[in-house]
Amino acid sequence: MMTSRWSTRLVLTAVLFVTFLIAQVSVPLRSLFEPRPVRFGWQMYTTLTYAPEASVEHADGELTTIDVLSLIADPRAEIHWAEPLARLLCEREDVEAVVATDRDGTRRIPCS
């Protein structure tokens, strides 16, 4: 049944429809211009991804490699792992810094 005018309900439907479409197109469109993968961009199997890696640096300068996969739930490639891993590992004793590798490369993060 077609209505003969734009009722409030119809206007709200139209607004919802258009807003949904704009969001669903603009977000993945923007994601095309960012390093893969990006969340909400429908970027599935778009590039090679690697699990994060980390080592802890002790006071004497020695490095100990950490089994990162035992510390996390899912090594999603969208996540910038370095800082969360550093925050976790810095809680350990005798850790001066964390050397972490994620999608942004390898960084040394000192424990403050």
Partner: peptide, 19 residues
């Protein structure tokens, strides 16, 4: 439309040297 959007961007995002 959502189904089309998924396939469109799943395809476009694979257009890179690595893939």
């Amino acid at each position: 439309l959502q189904v089309s959007i998924v396939y469109l961007f799943a395809g476009l995002s694979k257009i890179n040297a690595m893939y």
